[in-house]
Simulated scan of single mutants.
Amino acid sequence: MAGCGKTQLVSYFLQEHGSRYPHILFVDTSSSISLKNDFQAWARSLGNGHEHDVWEDARRLLASTLEENWILVFDNFDDPKLDLEPFIPRSKYGTIIITSRNRDASNFAGIYHLELGEMEKTEALAVLLRAARRQARLLREEMESANELLERLGFLAVALVQAGSLCYQRSSLNEPFTFTDYLSLFDSERATFMQLVLPTLDNYQLGTYAALNLSYRTIPVLCQKFLHFLAFFHHSYISLEMFANAAKFKFADPIYLMRRQSNEKPMFADLYSILYLDGEWSEVHIHEIARNLRAFSLISISSTAGIVFLHLHPLVKSWAKDILKEHEL
């Protein structure tokens, strides 16, 4: 089931225990093209003669060359027509995790298979309350609104976290932003989305998109633009160091290899406006943008070997690419 927390569960595990694995490879398994691209990109990132490796080299490295612990995450293996077998390296040093909405993916489970379904009502309520930083004892009207919200959001973790985070961020010491307040906004936002031509969305996804859009409209414009830009990366392990290195060259090519297309200039101008503060690259500024996005649970942040990484939930990424263009960012 989409949105029940499969990718988030893996991300949390890696954030807590990633130090066990000198090599972490997170690949988009939604298609063979994305699989090969991510394998190849990882191999080339190793440097030291691997700059021209292809995806088969990455698999070979994992299977026979590396003699250190590694973990490989096949994320979103949902297409039953995709043959995953050729991409699986076998090594005593390796750990492989597969996330999928396709139950047949359990056939690859050599040791453990964990099926995540819809949360129980008590579990979903706990997620909502924790995200909103509320006590379990609510007034009757507020509890009724909370239960109604659980139903509207289909007990999906990603949507409940969005709702709770927004309630917390919009609350003050003297005036909490209640679940009743949120329901009123949510109904209005959902009605707006129903008028858009989004035939691929089911009712639960529609609710999730509406919850995400409520959070999106609350954050500063620079954060909106940066989120829109992040949506075109793979959803996990987006390095902030990459932006810092690009900013040092003002997004120009340090080595001239080929002529840039003219339509790329507006994109560079947008990046400059987002990442620079008063005409200068500011690490504090970009970290503040990231903290704002994390405060509304639109991204999560981890750190490995001193490098800061940003992560988007796959549904957040899909929403950003499907919807943000409609708002003409």
Rank of each mutant, 00 (worst) to 15 (best):
D202P: 15
N203H: 11
N203W: 08
Y204N: 13
Q205L: 15
Q205R: 15
L206S: 07
L206N: 08
G207Y: 11
G207K: 12
T208I: 09
Y209M: 05
Y209N: 10
Y209A: 04
A210Q: 06
A211K: 06
A211G: 10
N213T: 09
S215V: 09
Y216S: 06
R217D: 11
T218L: 02
T218S: 09
I219D: 07
P220Y: 01
V221G: 05
C223F: 12
Q224S: 06
K225H: 14
F226E: 04
L227W: 08
H228E: 14
F229I: 11
A231I: 00
A231F: 00
H234G: 13
H234Q: 12
H234E: 07
S236P: 01
Y237P: 01
E241N: 10
E241W: 01
M242T: 14
M242S: 07
F243Q: 08
A244I: 00
A244T: 02
N245Y: 15
A247L: 03
K248G: 13
K248N: 11
F249I: 13
K250D: 14
K250E: 15
A252K: 11
A252H: 12
A252F: 07
D253N: 13
D253H: 07
D253E: 13
P254T: 04
L257V: 11
M258K: 12
R259H: 15
S262E: 10
N263S: 14
N263Y: 11
E264L: 09
E264A: 09
E264M: 06
K265F: 12
K265E: 14
K265P: 00
P266M: 03
P266T: 07
M267C: 00
M267D: 00
F268I: 15
A269T: 15
A269I: 13
D270N: 07
L271E: 05
L271A: 01
Y272T: 02
S273E: 02
S273M: 01
L275T: 03
L275N: 02
L275F: 10
Y276V: 02
L277N: 04
L277P: 00
G279L: 00
G279M: 01
W281K: 09
S282R: 08
E283V: 05
E283W: 06
E283C: 06
V284P: 07
I286K: 03
H287M: 05
H287S: 05
E288T: 15
E288D: 15
I289T: 09
A290S: 13
N292I: 09
N292S: 11
L293A: 14
L293N: 11
R294F: 03
A295V: 08
F296D: 11
S297N: 13
L298D: 02
L298G: 08
I299R: 00
S300N: 09
S302E: 01
S303Q: 12
T304N: 05
T304C: 03
A305F: 01
A305C: 02
G306S: 06
G306D: 06
F309E: 05
F309Y: 12
L310M: 06
L312E: 03
H313E: 11
P314S: 14
L315N: 06
V316R: 09
V316E: 04
K317W: 03
S318D: 13
W319I: 03
W319S: 05
K321A: 00
I323T: 06
L324G: 00
L324D: 03
K325I: 06
K325N: 10
K325L: 12
E326N: 03
